[in-house]
Amino acid sequence: MSPLLEVKGLKVDFHLENRIVHAVEGVDLQVRRNETVVLAGESGSGKTITTLALTRILPAPARIVAGQVLLEGRDMLALEEKKLYSIRGGVIAYIFQEPASFLNPVLTIGEQIVEAVIWHQRLGRQEAQDQGRELLRQVRIAEADRVFNSFPHQLSGGMNQRAFIAMALACKPSLLIADEPTTSLDVTIEAEILKLLTELKEKVGFSLLFITHNLAIARKISQRIYVMYRGRVVENGLTEDIFKDPKHFHTRELIAAYHKIGKL
C-alpha cells in the first residue's frame, strides 16, 4: 500500500533582503497510515519548516524551490490554493508548541472549535456546538461546558493544549502534525498529553508526525525516527535500531543529551 504522505527532495529557501538561506535542503520523508513518526533534531534544523511546507503555510520569506509532496497520491505543491483550504485541517491538522498563543485571544474556545467544525463538516450551528462539547470530552476535559465558554487566557497551558487538540481533531484529519506540543508544559502535563495523543490515535485512527528534540519522548511513542540536521535528514530508521546503533554524530548528541538529563 502506498504511504499516506510521501515527501521527495523537498527544498525550502528563505529569501531575505540580501541573501538566500537554504533552510531545508532535500528532505525525503514517508508517513504510513496509523503510524507514529518522529522528526527529531536541534533548533533550526528545519523540522518545523518542513512540516509547514507540506500544506504550503510557510511564513512569507520562505519559498519551496524543489521537491514533491504526495498526500494520498495527490501532489500538494501543484494544487491550487483554494483546494488546499479543505485539506488544511481536513486531511492534515497541526498542533503547536505554545497553545495559548495559537488560540485567538478574543474568541472563546467553543467559538473556535465550532468554527472549524462548521467549516470542514458543513454542519448547522447547533449540531456543531454539540459536537464541539463532545470533542472537548473526548480530549478528557472534565468541565467541558465551562471550558467551552472560556477564553484562552482563563485556562491553563495543559487545558489550552487539550482544547487545541480537540480543534485539530474537529475535522477528522488523516495526519496530525504535532510540533513540539509539550515543550511549554510541565512534565506531568506532558505525560498526560502524550498519553492522550496515543490513545486518540488508537481510537480515532490517524497518523502522527511528531516533532521533538527530546528523544526520550521519541522512544516512548514512535515506530520510526527521522533525524534532521542543518536542513537535511541525516539518519532514519526504526526507533529501536536508532537507539541501539546511532550512526550520525548528531543522533548520538541527541541521545547523549537525553542520558545526561537523566543523570542530573
Binding site: I57, Y85, R88, A93, Y94, F96, S101, A116, W119, A168
Partner: peptide
C-alpha cells in the same frame, strides 16, 4: 501572531482570517 498561522493550518481563507480573526 501564531494564532493566525494556526487558523491558516485549519484551512481558513484570507477573507475569513481578516474578518473573523
Amino acid at each position: 501572531r501564531e494564532f493566525i498561522q494556526a487558523e491558516r493550518a485549519l484551512g481558513a481563507s484570507d477573507a475569513r482570517i481578516i474578518i473573523r480573526h
